[in-house]
Write a protein that binds this DNA or RNA. Structure first.
Lengths: 198, 198
DNA sequence: CGTCTATTTGAATGTACTCAAAAGCGGTGG
DNA sequence: CCACCGCTTTTGAGTACATTCAAATAGACG
């Protein structure tokens, strides 16, 4: 059982999408739990089944794929008020393709597969809530595909900097390069070119 | 009102996800309609609001973005038993970023925004159904982002050919190039190189 | 201060693009 | 039946954007 104080951020976040009665809130809180991870720890590892959908209360995570050459490709970062999970693994309960690792000490609200199903069954509004979250994530993902095709590395970087200024500040540059799909060396060159242009 | 025969494909597709009672099926059929488009016609145009989520009964569509230089970037194709819409525009009912155009004569089942909401309200199972559809679309989209980073153009093409052999056959090569994020000239060179390798 | 990690810089290379032109492939009409 | 048209694909030369590898520099932390 979780204290309401700890979960304030989650409840506030949810209230901007749906209205839950006090009983529904209590039910939800009785089903989820909070877990703390240290910087560097893995929440999900490639090959394991992703058992939880996680809501970030504090901290920062990266989700990434390691290819055949051992190179890391960062798919997304998650900070406060974001979700993180390998959804492909979670919804099918099969081994994950991706890793999720903490870039800072991180506090998460953990929704297990069974709990999510139980919540859907008991609070149909939550099905609506999660549908809407995923709809928006899907839209964002499609737009990112387009940006990766339509924009140069420089413009992708400028977009990232504009869109996620908070994330840029707390993450090493070589990880941003990976997220943008370029090498750390090239991002460095892009940045120095941007400085010259001003 | 739509005949059940015309909608057989939709009902069959839905039955693999959820079980609807005859009354629920009838209610659903009373709310949606079928529309036919000719090859070349637009279902959605950049700047217009996307009013429908469409289920493809027959035919083929492409969804694409036109960038500042006037270049076309194909985000996805849809054939039988797939969905098509500019979801970003649909869920917010704001102007679309993307175009959807028919590559063949195409028959669609049209779910308007209001109808979808009405269906969610009356048949909660459908909220679950669409949540699951979108979850899978999101997972596919994320994996495509990774492939675009981790694979060369040649390997992306080989993956596409293996994954969507039916689509490759009915679509001109320059559109496949656009979907893969390369020029038509380069795809041609990739293909000729693949022939030499055998 | 030294060590470890992250960033920058430079030269050589590679993957994919641009532009231009030629070749292939249906369909249509004389 | 073939000549022509529009559209798609192929080929080639030159170019651009981004990578690789190596080395130097800068920052962070004990």
């Amino acid at each position: 059982m979780i204290s309401a104080i700890q979960m304030e951020a989650l409840l506030k976040y949810m209230s901007s999408h749906i209205q839950l009665s006090p009983e529904e809130e209590a039910f939800l809180l009785s089903k989820v739990f909070v877990r703390k991870y240290l910087k560097g720890q893995y929440i999900v590892q490639q090959g394991d089944v992703c058992k939880y959908e996680c809501f970030v209360l504090s901290g920062c995570t990266k989700m990434f794929y390691v290819d055949d050459e051992g190179q890391e490709h960062i798919i997304m970062f998650s900070i406060e008020d974001w979700w993180t999970s390998d959804m492909g693994s979670f919804i099918t309960q099969t081994p994950a393709d991706f890793n999720i690792q903490c870039l800072e000490n991180t506090v998460l609200v953990m929704f297990s597969y069974d709990v999510i199903e139980e919540l859907y069954a008991n609070i149909p509004k939550l099905e609506r809530f999660f549908r809407q979250i995923i709809e928006r994530a899907f839209v964002a993902s499609q737009k990112r595909i387009v940006r990766n095709f339509a924009l140069t590395a420089k413009d992708r970087y400028l977009y990232f900097r504009k869109q996620y200024p908070k994330i840029e500040q707390r993450i090493p540059q070589y990880m941003i390069a990976s997220y943008l799909g370029i090498t750390k060396e090239f991002l460095s060159k892009v940045k120095s070119q941007l400085i010259l242009e001003q």
